[in-house]
């Protein structure tokens, strides 16, 4: 018997499918020690636009799912990740983490799915309200998902940031497109494999590996993207370019910050408040 390893093909995750970049491009991913790891698909503008289409087509069903259902789906992601815990740890170590840090990061990432899963059916209770307007009306406010959120997560910690930013967007019913940095592409792909086998409907999370400086401008200027998480953008001029492009259709924007919003405040970035009035009377 041969113990030769079967190597994984590193593709993009669009519309629930693993696809090569439409451009046919790849980049060489080396480990922290400089050894060859993989030829990873390098996402292009076309891939980004395909991802927007799939995110939009997933939105109606995902945002219309019951909160209970969304919570179970997110919890299922934690279950699948738990089963692959060692794999995530190895990948983080390969890219330069210590075993201790890698283990902690993976555990936190799994816990984060569980934590967000529990929010799905509490958001409307905590954020919503019955409003005592001065008049004979029933008036209530409910939170609703903004739509499609493009996400450029921070690079360190790679897995935790991916999970935190994606879960915060999709728990309320948004669909998402993530640009994972080249250095994060191993865990990004493994996360995609977890998502693909965990009842997350196709298109709710799309993961592109590549260069944010190349792809993010196409998402920032895309009229069918409703919001953009720029927390992983470190270059000032790129940030300004992206924020200006996002202004074109008034995207909701999260800027990079040492203290990013956490918890409910992170979820609320991608929520709208809808208020409904109805008169009372016999």
């Amino acid at each position: 018997m041969s113990d030769l390893t079967v190597m994984r093909t590193h593709k993009l995750f669009i519309g629930g499918a693993f696809v090569r970049s439409e451009s046919g491009r790849t980049f060489v991913l080396n480990s922290a020690k400089g050894t060859f790891v993989a030829n990873v698909a390098l996402a292009s503008r076309k891939d980004a636009r395909d991802a927007v289409l799939s995110a939009r087509s997933a939105f109606e069903k995902w945002s219309g799912a019951t909160a209970y259902n969304r919570g179970q789906v997110l919890y299922r992601v934690a279950e699948i990740m738990q089963g692959r815990k060692d794999q995530f740890v190895e990948e983080l170590i390969l890219m330069g983490s210590s075993k201790r840090d890698a283990t902690k990061e993976v555990e936190q990432a799994i816990d984060q799915w569980v934590w967000y899963a529990g929010w799905s059916d509490k958001l409307a209770m905590v954020n919503g309200s019955a409003n005592p307007v001065a008049g004979n009306f029933f008036n209530f406010s409910v939170p609703e998902p903004t739509g499609i959120v493009a996400i450029i997560p921070t690079v360190t910690p790679s897995l935790y940031a991916l999970v935190d930013s994606v879960a915060a967007a999709i728990v309320s019913g948004n669909s998402s497109i993530v640009i994972a940095a080249k250095k994060s592409s191993l865990v990004a792909l493994s996360l995609a494999e977890c998502l693909a086998t965990s009842d997350v409907p196709p298109g709710v999370v799309n993961i592109l590996t590549g260069d944010a400086a190349e792809i993010a401008p196409w998402l920032a200027s895309h009229s069918d993207v409703n919001a953009i998480d720029l927390s992983g953008i470190s270059k000032k001029d790129l940030l300004i370019e992206l924020e200006k492009a996002a202004a074109e259709n008034l995207k909701r924007v999260l800027r990079p910050d040492k203290n990013l919003p956490q918890g409910l405040n992170r979820i609320n970035l991608w929520l709208e408040t809808k208020t409904v009035w109805h008169p009372r009377g016999y």
Binding site: N131, V133, A134, T146, T273, T275, H278, P279
Partner: peptide
């Protein structure tokens, strides 16, 4: 952001207002 059912253009300080 605001849906008026069987009424319209009603405003109140307790009622959130703003758009998608």
């Amino acid at each position: 952001g605001v849906v008026w059912a069987n009424t319209f253009n009603k405003f109140d300080p307790t009622s959130p207002f703003g758009g998608y």
